[in-house]
Amino acid sequence: MKLRRTMLYVPGNNPNMVKDAHIYRADSVMFDLEDSVSVHEKDAARFLIFRALKCIDYENTETVVRINSLHSPYGEDDLEAMVRARPDVIRLPKTESPEDIMEADEKLGILEKKLGLPKNEIKLFAAIENARGVVNVSRITEASDRLVGVAFGAEDFVTNLHTTRSREGTELFTARQEILLAGRAAGLHVIDSVFADVNDEAGFRREVELIKGMGFDGKSVINPRQVGIVHEIYTPSIEEINHARRVIRAIEAAEEEGSGVATLNGRMVDKPVVERARRTLELAHVSGLYLDEIQEEAAHA
C-alpha cells in the first residue's frame, strides 16, 4: 500500500530546506518552482532542484516537483530539467482541462524517448485550483496513464470563487467532494489543500479529521511540524486495530464453516467490513506500527 498522507512543500530556491527535506518523514516532498519562487529566481531554483535531485539521496521519500505552467515562459525548461533530474512525480499547477494533462503527458513522452528513459517513468499529479478545474475534474483524472493523484488547492480556489476560507470550510465542500469522487473513480490518490495558519494546531487537527473522514488520502502541508500531526491522525488507533483483528478472526472462522458472512457483537461482518478491516491493518503496518507490541499492550490492558 502506497501512502500519500503528507506532501511537504519545499520552496525551490531555499538550499537549507532543499538539502534534506526528507528528514521530516513526510510521505512525499514537493519542491516548488512555481508560486514560492519569484520571476527573477526561476532559473536559480530550476538549477538548484535539478542538482539537488541528482546529488542528494532522499531515501524512501517520494520526490515531487511542482513546475511552472507549461503556458508560462518557464514551464518547458522546468519540464526538461526535471525529466533529466528524474523525480518520482511532476505536479502540474492549476490544471483546468484534460488538455493540460495530455499536453504534459505528450511532452514527457517525447523527452523520455529522447533521453532513453523508460516509458511513463515519470508520474503526474494534477492540482485543481479553480472552478474550471473542479467542473472538468472527472475528465482531468481520466486524461493520462501517468496520473497517480489529484490535489486540491483551496487558496486559489476560494479567490476564484470570490470568497475566503472559513473555519468550517463550507465553501470548499462541493469542490472537495467533486475532486474526491473523480479521483476515486479513476483510482488515483486524492490529497487535500494546505492549511495556512501554522500556529493554529487545533484548527489544523480539526481540518485533518474532517478531510480524513471525507475520504482523502492525505494533505499538502507547508510546515514540517504538520507532518507528524497528519500521520498521527491517519494512523489507526489501538482500538481500531483490535477491532479489525476481531473482524478478520470472525470472518476466518465463518469461512472455515463454509459461510461468507459472520457476526461480531451482534453486527453483520460482510465483504465491505472485511475490506475495511484489512485496510486498517495494512495502514497500521505501513505506518510503522509494531503490531506484535500492540497485541501485548492490549493483553496487559
Binding site: P15, A44, R51, C55
Partner: peptide
C-alpha cells in the same frame, strides 16, 4: 557552508 550541489547550481545560474 553550501553543499556541492548547491555550489554547482549557483555557479551554473
Amino acid at each position: 557552508g553550501a553543499l556541492d550541489c548547491v555550489i554547482q547550481a549557483r555557479l551554473e545560474t
